[in-house]
Each structure stands twice: as C-alpha cells, then as structure tokens.
Simulated scan of single mutants.
Amino acid sequence: MEDSAIRELRADATRNRKQLLEAATRVFISAGTEPSMRAIAREAGVGIATLYRHFPSRESLVDAVYRDQVARLTSGARELLSELPPSSALRGWMDLFGDWIAAKNGMLDTLLVMIESGEIAHAQTRDELLTAIDALLDAGRATGELRADVSAEDIAASLIGIFTVAHPHEHDARASRLLNILMDGLRTTL
C-alpha cells in the first residue's frame, strides 16, 4: 500500500473516531439513562462494528468521551479568553460546564464504576477544571471585572449546585437565569 493510501486510511479512521465521539456526546447529553452502543452507532451514522473497532467496550467509549469533554473545558477556557472579555468568557465557560454535566448524566453508571475502580482519576479532572476556572478568574481580576474574593472552588461548587437543580437541557431557561445571577454576583461594580 502506498504512503498516500495509508495516510488516507488513517485520516478516515481519525474522522470516524471524531464522528463517533461527537455522536456519543450528543446521545449521552440527550439520554435520560445510559444509551445502547447501537443507539450511539446509529447517531454517528456508522455500523456497530465500526463503533466497536474504535471503542471495544462501553468503558473505552465513556473514557474517551469523558476525556474529550474535560479537554474541551480546559481548552475552552483559553479559547474563550482569547475571544471575549474575561467576564463573558467565564459565562460562556459555564455553558460548556453545563454540557459536560449533561454528558456525564448519560453515562453516569459506567463513569462511577470507572472512577471507583481507578480507571478515571477524578482528582486529576478536578485539578484540571479548577485550573481552567482560575485562569478565567485571574484574567477577570486583572481587568477589574471580577471579584478578587472568589475562588475556583467556589465557582465549581456553585455550578454543581445550579446544574443539580436545573439540568441544563431540561430547564435551559432556569439554568441560564441562575448562571446569570451567579455572574452578577461575581462582577465588581465599576
């Protein structure tokens, strides 16, 4: 097989994997309970064999979606800060956090087993998310937009509370309202 044909196959496999992750995330976000692997393959527009070729078990798929979502949250903080004022970036990041919570709800049973067994390092995820929040808060403090007396832990706890009472995709308006109230409390008066 020629090098260009191998590269094309690898590119195709990479696209399939990305497509599967995106589809799985959508299904996990919209599912009330853990969806079947067939439902995820169907959403991705691929056969079940393709799904299992990329993710040989439910755990490997959940792990990949979970890590992808955490990476989106950490890179999302940087991207939002590069495009928006810090307070707007933080508010946009809160929506990303809501998507992450919603995705976790659709894979919760498997995720809990994986955390309990040590397959997923919950403490590492926590540290990564707190670092992302700190970057947003630090930028907002530097511009004078955000209060200096609020910690990343305060924000994380507030977000968990908000999304516990207002699941982002069942109560979009309520979650949005609560997030806006939180943001009002985080801003300094200029």
Rank of each mutant, 00 (worst) to 15 (best):
L96F: 07
L111C: 10
M107I: 08
D127P: 00
A123R: 14
L130M: 13
T125Y: 07
D95L: 10
E116F: 13
A123W: 08
D95I: 09
L137K: 04
A102K: 00
S117K: 15
E116Y: 13
S117P: 03
D95T: 11
G92W: 01
L96H: 06
W100V: 02
S117E: 14
L112C: 13
L90R: 01
D134M: 08
D134L: 09
L112D: 13
F97S: 02
G98Q: 03
D95K: 11
D134P: 03
Q124T: 11
E128D: 15
E119H: 09
G98M: 03
T125M: 11
Q124D: 12
T110I: 10
D127Q: 14
I101D: 00
G118N: 07
M94C: 15
A121W: 06
I120M: 09
T125V: 09
G92A: 12
W100A: 12
L130N: 08
W93I: 04
G106P: 04
I120Q: 04
L112N: 15
L129P: 00
W100Y: 15
I133Q: 04
I133V: 15
T110S: 15
D127W: 05
L137Q: 04
H122C: 05
W93G: 01
L90D: 01
A121H: 10
L136N: 02
R126L: 13
A102V: 04
I115A: 10
A121P: 00
L108V: 06
W100N: 07
L96V: 02
L136H: 02
D99H: 08
L136V: 06
G92N: 06
L108E: 11
I133K: 04
L90A: 11
E119C: 04
D127T: 11
L129S: 04
D99Q: 11
I133H: 01
I133N: 02
M94Q: 08
D95Y: 12
A132E: 01
G98W: 00
D95R: 11
L136K: 03
H122R: 14
K104W: 05
L129T: 09
G118Y: 08
L108M: 14
G118E: 06
D99E: 13
L129G: 01
A103L: 03
R126M: 10
M107P: 00
I133M: 14
S117W: 08
I120E: 02
R126N: 13
S117G: 12
Q124G: 05
G118R: 07
L111G: 04
M94F: 11
R126H: 15
E119M: 09
T125W: 08
A132Q: 01
